[in-house]
Design a protein around this nucleic acid. Structure first.
Lengths: 204, 204
DNA sequence: AACGATACGGAGACACTCTCCGCTAGATCG
DNA sequence: CGATCTAGCGGAGAGTGTCTCCGTATCGTT
């Protein structure tokens, strides 16, 4: 019998490898939830019942582990995007909803915004692709809102993405009570949305 | 001869202690500038030519070292505050200038916004007092701008402070080119300003 | 059953934080 | 100017975490 191959010609993964990978992801999900994204990787390996070497072979560094973890959640965000695309009467509301979704997503684990920001900068991290994708989606929503007259023309999607990340980052501060979260959400929306006289001034 | 005492009766610090303290601060300033605020404390001790114990006696943890470092810069920020208080025609511009000053201040070292945010949350850190002071000042500027009709009434000083910190945090991302910094500045201002005052005058 | 290929595990090298305590060297007093 | 008292020094080392290396176990195939 021929060995099973993946579509791109690589050999199928060994059964135990797949099992370990899943265990690690499960343990990591749990551990990061409890201790934030800076929790000990060795502790995750131990919790998963594998050696440190196994963990690092599957995920060479913290970022790639994080990326794998987030990949599982991508679906939810993509679904949200589709919901917003089809279900919103108002392009500005859709953009707003999308930015909220990103903010929530970036708050999945304590301390997550930091590596996400770093990834957005380096573009050579496993997280970078994910971020880039979401920036692109943000671009679509933004353009629609702009064409609709609901968003200022001098705003860039990348900056809105960063602002969403930043909101999530601030939220990590215990001080940022719920009121702060809401306040910053509104602050941000006021920042990009057009109001009656939307003649944006020159930025000085 | 009487021993020199400080005003509150404590004994004057020993000469070498003072010298070492200064050396540590100098080395830390340099090291943090080069490596960001997460740089190795032991390396700072070595660069300062003192033992690790000496460093930790003077500054029990990273935050207190940071706080001492920032205290030296407080003067500049206070001066800026006074400038803005007296020299601004427009209360909104003054607030804007103050928030810019805070953003710049929080960007003194790479990674500084993170401990500042944490300090703002815990209120039991040496950095917390500094932050609290600046929030209070922000409150003054904000109130003036609100009374002047230049800032929305539903904005809180604390949130503006956090937003300034967040801007500084985003700036740490290499991706955040200069355009992003300016864009976020404007985004923020549009967020809190009333529409009539949204257009920045000579905000400096 | 036998044999590669693949993956496992955990010891250990290295880095960093922070403490402990014997000793040094300022400060003060006679 | 010693003598003495003690604040302050330094660095070894314990604890924790990251990440690698390689002998060994296991999988999948023939």
């Amino acid at each position: 019998m021929m060995q099973r191959t993946t579509t791109d010609g690589a050999r199928a993964p060994r059964a135990d490898a797949q099992r370990n990978r899943d265990r690690i992801l499960g343990a990591a999900e749990q551990y990061f939830s409890e201790h934030g994204v800076t929790g000990s990787l060795d502790a995750i390996a131990k919790r998963a019942g594998v050696g440190a070497g196994t963990l690092y072979r599957h995920f060479p560094n913290r970022e790639s582990l994080l990326a794998a973890l987030l990949a599982a959640r991508d679906d939810a965000l993509v679904a949200r995007r589709d919901d917003l695309r089809s279900g919103s009467v108002n392009a500005a509301d859709a953009l707003d909803g999308w930015l909220d979704a990103i903010t929530a997503w970036a708050g999945a684990f304590d301390g997550l915004p930091e590596p996400l920001r770093a990834a957005t900068a380096t573009s050579s991290s496993p997280l970078a692709m994910t971020c880039q994708g979401f920036i692109t989606t943000t671009e679509e929503f933004l353009r629609a809102a702009q064409d609709d007259g609901g968003a200022r023309r001098d705003v860039r999607a990348r900056d809105l993405f960063l602002a969403a990340l930043a909101r999530s980052w601030v939220r990590g501060a215990a001080l940022a009570d719920d009121a702060s979260a809401a306040a910053l959400a509104e602050l941000t929306r006021n920042g990009w949305a057009t109001t009656s006289a939307a003649r944006a001034g020159d930025g000085r």
